[in-house]
Design a protein around this nucleic acid. Structure first.
Lengths: 190, 190
DNA sequence: ATATGAAATTTTAACACAAAATTTCATATA
DNA sequence: TATATGAAATTTTGTGTTAAAATTTCATAT
């Protein structure tokens, strides 16, 4: 029986690069903000050198993502890295609204889209409209979700799906039970 | 009480164009194959003129998609067109393997990705490997699915997810109950 | 042993031009 | 009288070139 070391999901460098690109930041920009050299950052993103936890924390802060984005709750088997995400090993993506728990179903951040599993807690709601330059499709696995897109409101039930394309939206869970939604976003925002 | 006319989902022109583009076919190519004029086709894709059922059937055949792709099983409300797909109005996407029922969760074919809901019947299996130049992510909603990617086999359970990136794959439902999978494909293949 | 920063390399951006694809519309057709 | 055609007009996409920007490499310093 071995001690559980803190391990990333095995795709750290590629994830960091994808994250940086999705924000339109260059290595030069980031290195200046972090006070590190460009060469070092380049190596980190290619898994040639590995950042300490503190450095990783600094990067996470720079991109406004939770540190948890880089860690699955359990370790992936070697042959599953980049291919399979087990239910027990999904990465938490915090940062969003309260009453909303998001986890990543994609194995890393390098695809042209991202797939999330979102749990909307009972009576949770997003107060203010959000707009993103993305195409998003969601599917209600269970529960109910009220969705406002521009000036329309839709009452969605289990089995319904929706699309948002750069339009402003907000949501509310009108029920006393969780709503579970599979949510696809392109291009990636995390 | 009114008679139910055969109505497309309200996104026919755009869907036809997306479908044609996804196959890398030009209006000229298609018009020659169909024996119709380029101008007319152009107008169909812009909803300026509407094809007859026979013409639509001809197009469907040309693209090797079922005619059902263009019809939801019930009519969408005007303000939901292009935004919401109700559980009862999903479009059937046949053509795949036997023992597999696929429905479209995306409201049309014009996104950078497509979201499907696939039902794998008990003990259904895909005999031969498939390879597509796509990025695909799937999420097991319920049931079990065995998935082969290249030379590895994975036993997936409810809650697990996977990614396939241009790799050859095949699948089998090892159970006596349906497996339900939300499947995302980019770029679109339908 | 690791990080740095300047040099070397690779990638992306910005044009300009040609080719291809699509739209428009006056006319023919049913 | 509405619809389809096909040639002309327009728009979009592709190609090749060069410069700028971004990234990688690697000899040296820490």
């Amino acid at each position: 029986m071995s001690i559980n070391f803190l391990k990333t999901t095995g795709t750290l460098g590629a994830d960091l690069r994808a994250l940086r690109k999705s924000r339109g930041i260059t290595l030069i920009d980031l290195s200046e903000k972090m006070g590190r050299s460009v060469g070092w950052l380049s190596q980190v993103e290619r898994d040639i050198s590995s950042p300490t936890i503190n450095e990783l924390r600094q990067i996470a802060k720079e991109f406004q993502v939770p540190l948890s984005l880089f860690f699955g709750s359990s370790e992936a088997k070697a042959n599953e890295v980049g291919r399979i995400v087990r239910k027990s090993a999904r990465r938490k993506i915090g940062g969003g609204a309260i009453g909303l728990v998001e986890e990543l179903l994609s194995p890393d951040l390098t695809d042209d889209f991202e797939v999330l599993r979102s749990v909307f807690n009972p009576n949770a709601k997003l107060e203010n409209f959000v707009t993103r330059p993305t195409q998003e499709v969601g599917y209600i696995v269970s529960g109910n979700l009220n969705l406002w897109i521009e000036d329309e409101m839709f009452e969605l039930e289990s089995g319904d799906s929706f699309r948002i394309r750069g339009e402003q939206f907000k949501w509310a869970n009108p029920n006393d039970k969780n709503a579970i939604v599979i949510w696809v976003i392109a291009p990636p925002i995390y």
